[in-house]
């Protein structure tokens, strides 16, 4: 069987959702990141998750280029200045319109609402 490796239902013009687990240093509050992931799992939407964007940037992981190439992007991670810097330093600058939600300062409710806006 031939396979086109994309989700079964691809909705044009909807943002790609990316969740960073910050698994390598735990600077994002555990309660917030667990609740955000839990809410994403409760929804029916497709989303991407990575163990740690810092780890990927440290190794110039080519997946960062794939992420940055998404036309519309919503990222749940940490401080937007840091997230943009990580992508830029790895040679894959984020598009201007990428939305970055900060799980270090925002509540899980705020982050989830922004991530799933117009998708539930």
């Amino acid at each position: 069987m031939s396979f086109v490796p994309t989700p079964s239902i691809r909705v044009p013009d909807t943002p790609t959702i990316l969740y960073c687990r910050c698994a390598y240093a735990q600077v994002v509050p555990t309660g917030v990141k667990n609740e955000v992931l839990g809410k994403l799992c409760e929804s029916s939407t497709s989303f991407e998750t990575v163990a740690d964007l810092c780890e990927m940037a440290a190794h110039r992981d080519p997946r960062l280029q794939a992420i940055a190439s998404c036309a519309k992007l919503r990222i749940a991670a940490c401080y937007p200045r840091a997230v943009r810097g990580l992508f830029q330093q790895a040679g894959s600058p984020l598009p201007e319109n990428a939305e970055i939600l900060n799980m270090r300062t925002q509540t899980a409710g705020e982050v989830t609402e922004a991530l799933l806006q117009s998708q539930i």
């Binding site: 989700p7 079964s8 691809r10 909807t14 943002p15 790609t16 029916s44 163990a51």
Partner: peptide
């Protein structure tokens, strides 16, 4: 790295 492939949202 884990992709949840459900409904809605574009894929990476």
């Amino acid at each position: 790295a884990v992709t949840r492939s459900g409904r809605g949202a574009s894929a990476m």
